[in-house]
Amino acid sequence: MPLPAEVLGMLAFTLLAFWGISLWALTRTLRQESRKVEILKHQDRMDTYSPRALADLREWVETNPNDPLADRAREQYNECVDVLTQTDRHFYDWSDTEIEQLERL
């Protein structure tokens, strides 16, 4: 019995949505892992936040200075800034201009 087009379409969509996304995520995360290993062979520390995530973190610390976790957040922010300014290889897409504008908290 030949399969109706609707069934074939749904089969293709399902495979793409589940296996497609899973394999994309697997490949991406394993490639990122290889890149991290490569960076850590070259230097002992690595940037921990993307530009967007670091901006979020800074904004949160500035708006919640008395939060019980503010010190930890500040420490993580400063650690990332230090690494970005002291190392030449970065995991996330940081431009030189963005790094120059960073300030410790």
């Binding site: 993307s50 995530a53 939060d67 976790l69 957040a73």
Partner: peptide
Amino acid sequence: RLRMLAVNRNAGIY
């Protein structure tokens, strides 16, 4: 807090 301190730290996606 968790998103700032752990989820987006070293994350492969934002």
